[in-house]
Every structure is written in C-alpha cells, then in structure tokens.
C-alpha cells in the first residue's frame, strides 16, 4: 500500500505539476485528485485485461 501510494504520487506529480510555482494552483490540485481516481481506474482496467488474457 505504501509502495502504491508512492507510485501514484510520483506519476501524478509528473503529469499534473509541470511547471512548479509558489503554490499549488486550483487546476493542479484538481488534476492531482482526478489523477488518483484515474490511476485506480487504469489499474482495474488492466487487472481485468490480464485476467481475460490468461483465460
């Protein structure tokens, strides 16, 4: 779980904070929370695809 948290944080920081400024903008914050949900969604899609492929 700790490792998953770090992966999501690193991936989302990479995609959402491209030009770091003096504070996190509203858009960056929104992008970060969306990113957490989307990453989990991506994990579910891929988990399903792997199950299907192995059948």
């Amino acid at each position: 779980a700790q490792e998953f948290f770090q992966t999501v944080r690193d991936k989302c920081f990479e995609k959402c904070v491209t030009r770091p400024s003096t504070s996190l903008s509203g858009g960056e914050s929104k992008c970060l929370t969306n990113c957490c949900d989307r990453y989990r969604e991506a994990l579910a899609i891929i988990s399903q695809a792997v199950v299907t492929s192995l059948e």
């Binding site: 969306n34 990113c35 990453y39 991506a42």
Partner: peptide, 17 residues
C-alpha cells in the same frame, strides 16, 4: 498488474480529468 499499469499509464493517458 502494477508493472503494466506503470507502463501503460505513460503510453495511454494524457492529463488526468
């Protein structure tokens, strides 16, 4: 699954909305 999500996320997903 973790490894594939890592690779495929970078290949497939743009700015998260």
């Amino acid at each position: 699954v973790s490894k594939l999500t890592d690779i495929c996320w970078d290949k497939c997903v743009g700015t998260p909305s």
